[in-house]
Amino acid sequence: MPDLAPPIDDRLLHVDADGALMLLAARERESGRLVFPAPGDADPERYESVLLPREGRLWSWTVQRFRPKSPPYAGPEAFAPYAVGYVALGDAIIVEGRLTGAPLDGFAIDMKMRLVAEPFTLESGERRTTFAFAPITEKAA
């Protein structure tokens, strides 16, 4: 999608022809095990590149209520708490990410969730795109 800022990592996100955001992962050919994120130097004989399902259910969650230390955190000095969770994507893999689309106390285990693009501003003010999961509401569904 043209209105998205550059991805925070070149090997993290995939936008398909319809503009839908997907997560890049790898499948170990021998064991069939999914690996996310895809290993940086994935040996193509060992791993094949795959895209993860976009929907799943919230497996656990919490709220990050204090600003993480920098480094590694690269966000601006001004801080607003954000929710974080693990989402079980079908029967594929459980992925950790930021949660959005609901108040901080609006998340519950087993909620239906969908992958969304999440704008992320670096301390320098530059904008990047990362991913988050948002509840699938009646209206959006």
């Binding site: 497996w59 590694p72 974080v84």
Partner: peptide, 25 residues
Amino acid sequence: PDWYGETGLMLTTQFFAMKIQRYMA
């Protein structure tokens, strides 16, 4: 990868909170 720390996911406190959150449920 760096993005994991940069976007604020690399905190031991989050892990402990999410492990007990699920366990409690």
